[in-house]
Design a protein around this nucleic acid. Structure first.
Lengths: 248, 248
DNA sequence: CGACACCTTGAATTACCTCAAGCCGAGTGG
DNA sequence: CCACTCGGCTTGAGGTAATTCAAGGTGTCG
């Protein structure tokens, strides 16, 4: 999914150039001037490639860095007290992993690559030192965190109010919008995650996810073939997502 | 609920003394030295009393301040696109309202008093200016935000994985723990919110909330009379909350 | 080729919802 | 003072959306 630059050569050791990065208009340092951007790029640590299934962050390990997804995608999972594993987020390029550990000593979630991916590592001490001198950067950091809070709140509404159909429609639209933000088509994309992951994220059984996909396809709202989705009728999906069949 | 200091005289105009406040060990400025605490107290703006039902923050209005609950309690609600109102959090003394708007221009949620309450207002510009000079304060702010992210994540797990019974048990235990943190009994407290509010928060119909309360009472796990709860069997509740009857 | 992970679809079950009725306490007004 | 309403709570009966259980299909990889 969204494999832009995934196949590019491993970036030069030492530094990444933010200027060259296709994500610069959406990434964390959004709003920095060219000179500031350069200083920001200078703190990026050893860019890391990860293969499908590899852990970027392991729950319970000490926090030291934030990570920006440069290419590929990730799922954020909590392994609940016992054994159950629960997906709390999916991360697309330019999104930031590790924010829930800022100000804490320990990561409360794991972050797992869903496909071959690259991340930019931002050591938090460097980031904080730099943001002392770049107010715009501090603002960007705050914004990232509060946006994540918003997202969680919308999710809370979705999970507690919405039928399975509505959850599914919202999920597809959310993915579509996030792809569109990054300059890709809102009408078609690859899902990097399994039906089980989607189910875990949306609070549905994986069978239900599968059935809903089929149902949507029968109604000509989407086509789906494996993990390749096309959204055929955005307005209808939006109608479903917004009021469609609210319970309660 | 938790009416400590609610009936005290309105604090002196101009400033609140954090030192005198019973919450100082849990509040945002946790970890500040006495001198730093004084500077922190100096930025607190016109302490506000609110009556039951009054809005502390209205969704859609510009962000300017954070608010710390000094006494009483609040619910945080999102009015969903259409008309439906959805409770996303309950706030107890020493907890901070408005964090989801830091770094944004506009509040995405409303905050409503559940009873007569007092808050300390922290103008964000002052807070930020001060935290430039007090690293401990900045850290505290980060910690608050990331803790809220954690809470949201636990909630996500609860809402998508748990049966109604488990949600209810978790809710009661969460309230109990938060009361205990503030020096009150973990075994008995007043619920300031209605059954409908609890249902909205937990993603259950209010009838279900009521039935569960009764069921728990029949099993001698709690007693409940109106909004006065006593937790009789914490271990059993914990068992329920942790694995009890997981679906999926 | 078999093993395995992933997905689809059907049938039966159930947890929770909706609808409905009734109770209680507080506030209001005749 | 009583009747009234109104909001909040409880409880029952019945319905249904989504689950669980189960079986079978497909693609990938060693």
């Amino acid at each position: 999914m969204t494999d832009h630059s995934a196949h590019q050569a491993s970036p030069p050791t030492g530094q990444l150039q933010c200027q060259g990065c296709s994500l610069c208009t959406h990434c964390l340092p959004l709003g920095l001037g060219p000179e500031e951007l350069k200083r920001f790029a200078a703190i990026i640590d050893r860019p890391r490639p990860l293969k499908r299934g590899e852990l970027l962050v392991r729950q319970g390990t000490p926090f030291s860095s934030l990570y920006v997804v440069r290419s590929g995608s990730f799922k954020q999972v909590v392994t609940d007290g016992g054994y159950r594993e629960h997906v709390t987020h999916f991360l697309l390029p330019s999104e930031v992993a590790g924010l829930d550990a800022v100000g804490e000593a320990i990561h409360a979630t794991s972050v797992v690559a869903l496909e071959s991916s690259f991340v930019c590592e931002l050591p938090f001490t460097s980031l904080e030192a730099l943001s002392d001198r770049l107010p715009a950067l501090r603002g960007a950091l705050y914004r990232c965190m509060s946006q994540e809070l918003h997202r969680d709140q919308r999710l809370h509404c979705l999970l507690s109010f919405a039928t399975a159909e509505r959850r599914m429609a919202s999920f597809l639209l959310d993915m579509s919008a996030r792809h569109a933000e990054r300059g890709y088509s809102p009408f078609g994309f690859q899902l990097a995650m399994s039906r089980a992951d989607i189910g875990s994220f949306l609070g549905l059984a994986l069978e239900t996810v599968s059935r809903l996909m089929s149902r949507f396809q029968r109604r000509r709202l989407i086509t789906i073939e494996g993990r390749e989705v096309s959204l055929l009728d955005l307005p209808a999906l939006e109608a479903l997502a917004e009021q469609g069949d609210t319970r309660r």
